[in-house]
Design a protein around this nucleic acid. Structure first.
Lengths: 305, 305
DNA sequence: ATGTTTTTTTCCTTTTTTGACATAATAAGT
DNA sequence: ACTTATTATGTCAAAAAAGGAAAAAAACAT
């Protein structure tokens, strides 16, 4: 029944020593101030001020309330100050979880750039292929390769990531070029494995039809770049994001395998909690990553064109 | 725009970890809690909680607000506790200003009795004939002999005080009994004087007609009892409250002078600030004083009968 | 997929708050 | 003592806000 804001108004009135001054200051009418103070007195069942038209005098009770409420008021102001402009300021920490496959490629650079661009924003990167619970573990942002693992989150597509199977020209010359996805079964495949997430099922598609092949491989790595190096050295066929091996393919170190089939298209998404209040720095980071991916893609077009 | 009570509701919600639990606890509906938290977020322009149906998770901003607001909430609670029941409890101090003439008589005893009756109430007595400004000087109660010196105050009649002129039988025998008020001019009058308030104008009335006499006196005192003693010793005629000399007159130490004229009737009033919130202990004290006066008057009736 | 629990939205009613104005009170100036 | 200026309060009608019920949506669990 006692309204906190009435108490704070009372503090203001005491500070100023006048109802009307406070009314003016807060753009209220005198009667409103009068009524709210009266209401407070009624709610507390105690007289706080003796009023004459010229002077306000604190009662003992009023004095006691004033002394303590002043502190509370300041304290609450501090609390408010702590969060005002929180969504707007370009300060603070962003905790990001990134799957290892994505961290390897564009993102690391993009985030490094971002940190240089906004020196007051701190980014904490947590690389893990484990599907972390963003909310539970206090992440602000996750990069994912599936659109919506959790519907209380919001997903924004950053890019479409093509994955390709590739090998060194030497390997192809020795073992022959597989003519279909199924033919990969008889080849030496380099398998990505990270935190028990074995990616030994490779996906290809053409004309909307998807073909999944369970491949075999004696060589496994938890790092895509290691797979890439292994492929270059002729160890076998690697299935990796196109961006990773684009240059190798341009300068002939690697060639695409099963050329008749388009490698599967996988989206890369920024996933973050659904918020009705926008967090500016978070949006900036997401946007920065998206642009980094777009630039990378433009680079493809230029070199592939 | 940000409502303090919304912030405190937010603190409650975080403590409980659920909107609906808090709704139940405070007898609100879920929708109200939801709306108020949402409103708070909108007002602060920041997301405070991530909600799922199973769990509420604090955002960084929410966490910052919670930490500080919790302190403010406790602080405000302390402030409220400091005054709740203030008007009802029989504790605390009552500052009373009493004119010397009244303090001399019944009041001192009455107040002493009152203090014994309510051990937790402290009474601070300030004896002064100066007309103190109750509000300015922080008094809770004044005893006055005039009904309403200040209209922002409230006055309650405690008793009607008769003042009488009296002298020792010896004095009357030597100097003669004055037959009219005017005759007092030729007599040795004992004048009450306190803080420059000279009471050398004595008032008598009969049949509604008032006669004021400016008396002369070589003996002045700031204490009515001294005047009484002086009168008993035969020094002259004293003009004092009847209660003061009632017993002296009964046992013949003093006799009333100018017996044909009734001494003036003066009211004794309790004067205190007009308060819309009753202060129980103050009312108790006033009532106690009133009863003390009434008892004293009953005693007169019995002995004068 | 289905059901359950929790939050949110919607729509409507009730309550509160507000400002304008009139009134009352009083301190200060003349 | 009289006037004047300032200040607080009461009243009333309009506006705003809060509140509640129920349906909808969301998030999980199974």
């Amino acid at each position: 029944m006692v309204k906190a804001d009435d108490i704070f108004l009372f503090v203001e009135v005491v500070d100023e020593g006048s109802f009307s001054k406070i009314a003016e200051k807060f753009e209220l009418t005198n009667s409103v101030v009068s009524k709210r103070i009266s209401r407070l007195e009624k709610a507390l069942n105690v007289q706080l001020l003796y009023r004459t038209t010229r002077k306000l005098t604190l009662t003992d009770a009023g004095s006691a309330l004033y002394g303590k409420a002043r502190i509370a008021k300041q304290s609450l102001q501090d609390a408010r100050d702590a969060v005002t402009g929180y969504g707007e300021t370009l300060k603070g920490k962003i905790k990001v979880t990134v799957p290892a496959v994505s961290a390897d490629i564009v993102l690391s650079n993009a985030i490094a750039e971002f940190c240089q661009l906004y020196p007051e924003i701190e980014v904490e990167l947590f690389v893990s292929n484990r599907m972390v619970n963003i909310l539970d573990e206090g992440f602000d942002l996750a990069i994912r390769t599936a659109p919506l693992p959790d519907s209380s989150l919001v997903a924004r597509r950053l890019m479409d990531s093509h994955w390709v199977a590739c090998a060194s020209p030497k390997y192809v010359a020795q073992k022959g070029m597989p003519q279909s996805p199924e033919a990969l079964i008889d080849h030496q495949c380099l398998v990505y494995k990270y935190e028990s997430t074995g990616a030994d099922r490779w996906s290809f598609e053409q004309d909307g039809k998807e073909t999944i092949v369970s491949v075999n491989g004696r060589y496994q790595a938890n790092n895509l770049d290691s797979l890439r190096q292994a492929a270059i050295s002729g160890l076998g066929i690697a299935y990796v994001p196109k961006v990773l091996v684009h240059e190798d393919m341009l300068n002939g170190k690697l060639v695409s395998v099963a050329p008749l089939y388009c490698a599967k298209l996988m989206g890369v998404y920024a996933v973050y909690p659904r918020s009705r209040q926008p967090d500016k720095k978070l949006n900036l980071l997401v946007e920065h990553c998206r642009e980094a991916y777009i630039k990378k893609q433009e680079y493809f077009y230029l070199t592939e064109g």
